[in-house]
């Protein structure tokens, strides 16, 4: 496709060949970027996806995992749809590595988006972000059970703040309603930090933010976690507030909310039609990134679960995840079609 190679690559060719001969897996040579790669970030600067992409960028730079430079462009308009539309419109282009979450395949489900989920192909999922139920630090509830009981007393009155509408947060709140037979009121805000401020200010009763979004405020005791939507408790770490750490938070299932797992994958995509060699190249690259100490540090610090998925495993995960969420969409009547 790109038959015209820049001069510098010609000069580097022998060098690349030499190194390729040294590496055991010859597959990495099959495709190599020969011009800057654009990291399309489907969130605004400073968002969770942005930190994800920039961390990957910094690790690639630090360990010199790629010869070509990286350009990060933030396209967070329309809850991230802007970025996906942008990549989808450059079919076959292996230079648009797109960073997102599961909203790549969820957005087209709820809204009439100008792109389809198959317009991009998955490259890898690198980490799973956890969800928790958070309440104000001064709230009376000592456990999730008490919180749900209180909600049952006042059906439809307790307010959950969340990021965006008909997105991961609201889906989870609907699942909690379904699992416990309660009713909440969901108030959509523009991003997790606003949902946080509203909770810290006592204007809403709870939110379901990711650990990273609320860590600093938990430290200060402004808010506190009740339970986490993961199959088992989070790994023990340093205490965050009053001797309690992430590992001390009970799972929501143990608190009587029958949702075994609800997580958000941090995903990387390429436009559909980009060659298989290119996909393999980026898979290898991201795999290497996920094995660095810096990546482990990022995952620990943001309290995510490191889990590298690619190929069929990833496709299977996406199918499962999509069908779980789609069920909620259909129940709530959000599906676009």
């Amino acid at each position: 496709m790109y038959t015209l190679k820049p001069l510098c690559t010609h000069q580097l060719r022998p060098l690349a060949l030499f190194f390729a001969a040294l590496t055991v897996s010859g597959s990495a040579l099959a495709w190599q970027p020969d011009r800057p790669v654009e990291f399309v970030v489907t969130s605004g600067a400073g968002g969770g996806t942005d930190t994800f992409a920039r961390t990957v960028q910094s690790i690639i730079g630090k360990h010199q995992l790629m010869d070509e430079s990286i350009i990060v462009s933030n396209k967070g308009g329309g809850s991230g749809a802007e970025g996906y539309v942008y990549s989808a419109s450059s079919k076959d282009d292996p230079y648009k590595l797109t960073f997102g979450t599961n909203n790549e395949y969820l957005l087209p489900e709820v809204g009439d988006m100008p792109y389809a989920a198959d317009d991009l192909q998955p490259v890898a999922a690198m980490a799973m972000d956890e969800f928790l139920i958070w309440v104000n630090g001064d709230a009376d509830y000592a456990s999730a059970k008490e919180f749900i009981d209180a909600a049952k007393q006042n059906p439809g009155k307790m307010q959950f703040a969340g990021s965006q509408s008909k997105d991961t947060d609201q889906t989870l709140v609907s699942m909690i309603e379904e699992a416990t037979g309660t009713e909440f009121r969901y108030v959509p805000f523009n991003g997790g930090s606003q949902a946080l401020v509203q909770l810290a200010g006592g204007h809403v009763d709870a939110n379901v933010n990711n650990p990273n979004e609320n860590l600093g405020q938990w430290q200060a005791g402004m808010i506190k976690p009740l339970c986490v939507f993961s199959p088992e408790q989070l790994p023990k770490g340093e205490p965050v507030h009053e001797g309690k750490g992430w590992g001390d938070i009970p799972t929501c299932q143990s608190q009587g909310i029958d949702i075994a797992e609800y997580r958000m994958p941090r995903t990387v995509w390429l436009p559909a039609g980009a060659s298989e060699e290119a996909v393999t190249y980026y898979q290898d690259l991201l795999k290497k990134v996920s094995e660095t100490p810096e990546w482990k540090d990022y995952v620990t610090r943001t309290v995510q679960t490191s889990q590298f998925l690619s190929g069929d495993e990833l496709k299977q995960y996406i199918d499962d995840n999509a069908s779980t969420v789609k069920k909620v969409f259909e129940q709530e009547g959000w599906s676009a079609s």
Binding site: L4, K5, P6, L7, R35, P36, E38, S69, I71, Y95
Partner: peptide, 17 residues
């Protein structure tokens, strides 16, 4: 600043992307 501007066939012919 490393912000790419729109390029066309001429730049590509010179190998600038």
């Amino acid at each position: 600043f490393q912000v790419p501007l729109l390029k066309g066939p001429l730049e590509h012919a010179f190998g600038i992307y």
